[in-house]
Each structure stands twice: as C-alpha cells, then as structure tokens.
Design a protein around this nucleic acid. Structure first.
Lengths: 235, 235
DNA sequence: GTGAACCGGTGGTCCGACCAATATTTTTTA
DNA sequence: TAAAAAATATTGGTCGGACCACCGGTTCAC
C-alpha cells in the first residue's frame, strides 16, 4: 500500500550558480556576513570562486529575490537583514541553520500551522462549492492507489482552495515545502495511515455538511495528534 | 507632524531584466500562459525581446525563484501552476491582477491578518523579554520625530519579534510589503494618527503587563477599526 | 522488436568587451 | 578656503558569440 520512499536525495548534480547561492545564503543567514555589510564585487567573487561573472550574477539575482541582498548599480552588493524584509521562502534556511534542524524554529512552524490550518478548515466548511466537494470526494474515496502522503497533501490543498482565501493556498505551499520530507517517514507507520484515512472521511463529512465548528475541531485534533507522533518519531 | 508622502514611485529606470520579469509574470498570473505550457527558448525570447540571452536568463532565474516556471536543462522552460507551488511572494501580483486591485483578494489579505496579528500580540505578551519591552518603549514614547506610518510599522515588527516566533516576523514582512503603499494615505487623516498613538500606548501596556488576553483583544479591535476606515477610504 | 548510437535543440557556463550608474578624487571657482 | 564642478575609478548592467552538458527523438544495427 505504502510506496517505497526514495529517501535518497536526487544526488545533486548541482548547478554552479546554485552552489554559490547556497554558500552565500548560508553565510548570511548565520550572520557570518552581517546586515549592511558589503560583499565582494561580482568580478571579485568570480575570481575567488573561479567561475564566470555571469554565473555569479545569476546567483546574486536569486539572493536578491530572496531579499537577502540589495544590489546597487555602480556601488556594490549589500547584505540585508532578513528579519526586516525576508519572506517565508527563508523558512527552510532558518529551519536548517548549520545543517541541523533547529527545534525551536520547528516548534514555531508547528505553532503557526496549528493556528492557520484549523481556521482554513473552518472557512472551507463555510465556503466550499460543489466542485470543491467532489474534488474532496475523489481524493477521500477514490484514490486508493495514491500513497497516503500524497493523498494527505492533496487533501489539504483542496481544503485550502475551498476556503475561498487564496492566501491560505500560498501559505500552505510554504508549509508543505518544509514538511514534505518528513511525510514519507511519518506514513511508514501503518497506524498513521489508518488514522489519516479516518481523518479524511471525518473532515470530508464536516465540510460536506458545512459544519464549520466541527471541521475546525477535527483539524485541531488531528494536528495535535500528528505533532505528538512526529515529535516522538524525531527523538 | 505627518511627513509629506512621496506618493510617486521612484520613476523606475527599470532594468531590462526586470521588465521581462514583469511581462512574463503578469502573463502567467493571468493565465495567458497556462500551467504546463512551454515558453519560448532563451534564444527565442532574446530574439523576440531584442535583448541579450544573458538578460533573458536573469529574468528566468527570477521567475524560477518565484516558482512560476520550471527550467529543465536540455529541455526548456515550463510554466508552473502557482496555486500548486507558489509562495506568498506572489500576493502582490495576485492582488493587482490587471493593474486593478482585486477586492476579493484584498479581503482575503485582511481576513488573514485579522487571524494572525492578534495571535502574534498574544504571543508577544507571553514571551516578550525586557529587551523587547524597551524597544517598544522607545518606539511608543520616544519617537515623536518619526512619521506615524513608520512608527506603526516598526511597532508591529517589534511585536512580531517579541512573539518568539520568527515565522510571525517573516509573515508580517509579507503583509507589510502589500500595505505599505496605503499607510501614507491612511495616516494623512489626523484622527487616524491620534488613534494610533493611543493604540500604541495601550498595546504597550498590555504587553508590559504580560496580559495576553488584553493584548490580543486590543489588536483585534484596532484591526477591525482600521479595516473599516480603510475600506471607507477606498470607496 | 529492441537496444545502442547518433543528432539536433535546449539550458549552463565561459570569455571579453562596452555601457550606465555611482563613488571618489581632482580641479576649478567664488 | 570652502563649495561647486569636472574628471576618474569602480561597480553593476548589457552585449555577442562561443562551447559544454543534458534531453528527446531518430536512426540504425542486431
């Protein structure tokens, strides 16, 4: 039932510019290079890293779009304070500062999820359309072939859409990116799979019946249980 | 007291690659180019837009980091479904689809803010350190020279930090980017300035006293009032 | 039929040049 | 002498053209 998880990473045939991004991103997040500080010029970086200037530029573009640096024409490249301007895109870096998972930040993530996702379910129960409902039905009752991690992810996505608030969808995407890698692991336990299947049915019914309070309550309970299991798993 | 607002944009001497980003981003968000579709090759784009391929590449990098396109080596560039993978960075584009403010999405933004920010205040009242408190004091009582829009923004930022949840900070940043442009306008009304000053003192006291419930309540009320005023202003 | 070699097209990287904006220094000027 | 203006140096922005690495489809040998 559960598909074998390809726990191995794609064995990164990393692109050069990505390596540069990683190096700089990491140093900025860990405050090796402080906010306001000027980093070497494109030409200098190219020289240091032994790559072409174009490659450096592509890396800097990426860092700029992450709001980690500010590029000033004719002047130079300056490090920004990501706490002042950074976006959710940085969660991953902050979560894994120094390669190890930062448990405090992970807890932050869970806290926020516990605030948002139940509310999302509430809204979904309130605003769901017939079309949303049939999407839900499809995933809950007619997707036995799909591994549970994907089903669960998909279910949340549909609920987010059904909430009628597009921002929930975008936020959920941000969360998903972080938790994806643990889902496989989590659903290796057959009990978790069974529990999720039950949960899917329950939340489906609540949303179908437009029972906002129940939908929210179910979601709250599920998250709580899942968090406990997950933390147990990580110890 | 209120600084004259430079409502005019910096009169963008737009960089070329940015123009390309804007064009493509807009077309993707408005579904001119559907998810899964392949866009012209870098060389073709360079030819069409009459720019150098490097310039096109920098633009594509940006779109890639927005999760709007997927670049496949040896294959091509494909449009992604931003609802499936997009991040909060896209809020701005979605908010201003077709150049006009999408009121439904704007309402979504307000709804989400009303969920998050009061909770943030609650956490701040719970977790604030002495250092946070003195930062607050500074901004509430000793920053008369600072225009109210900046003070208000700063206050929220400090509260976010004080919450002890770094994700609140990043989320708030995302919101702020959207609402910044309206703040000037909002604080042109002397009554709003006075109201905010009173609010600042009230929330400061609640956080100082570690009164979580009151802090949350104050924030809820303020947001409600501000929303009403803002919607009035927009009509 | 099937697998291997091939080939065309695409993104990835490189080089070296020049343009455009900014910062710094030098010169001019009041 | 100090402020203003002009020249210069530095840095990011754009250019063009070349070659490499990877992917997909085609062809060909078996």
């Amino acid at each position: 039932m559960i598909k074998a998880a390809p726990l191995l990473k794609p064995l990164s045939k990393t692109k050069l510019y990505e390596e540069i991004v990683e190096q700089l991103k990491s140093r900025i997040i860990r405050r090796d290079i402080g906010p306001g500080e000027k980093i070497p010029t494109e030409r200098a970086l190219a020289d240091i890293l032994q790559v072409n200037r174009s490659t450096v530029r592509e890396a800097l573009r990426k860092l700029e779009s992450l709001d980690l640096v500010e590029i000033r024409h004719g002047d130079g490249v300056y490090v920004k304070d990501y706490l002042e301007s950074g976006s959710l895109e940085l969660v991953h870096e902050i979560l894994f500062k120094d390669g190890l998972l930062d448990l405090a930040v992970f807890q932050n993530l869970l806290d926020l999820r516990r605030l948002l996702v139940p509310e999302m379910a509430w809204c979904a129960a309130k605003n769901r359309t017939e079309s949303d409902l049939s999407s839900l039905e499809q995933i809950v009752f007619h997707s036995d072939d799909m591994p549970m991690d994907k089903r669960d992810k998909r279910l949340h996505h549909i609920i987010a859409r059904a909430s009628g608030n597009v921002l929930f969808v975008l936020l959920l995407n941000a969360f998903t990116r972080q938790t994806d890698q643990y889902y496989n692991l989590y659903f290796k336990d057959e009990r978790h799979v069974a529990a999720s299947a039950a949960f899917h049915k329950a939340i489906y019914e609540a949303i179908r019946d437009r029972d906002m309070v129940r939908a929210k309550q179910i979601m709250t309970d599920v998250l709580k249980a899942a968090e406990e299991n997950m933390l147990k798993l990580m110890k």
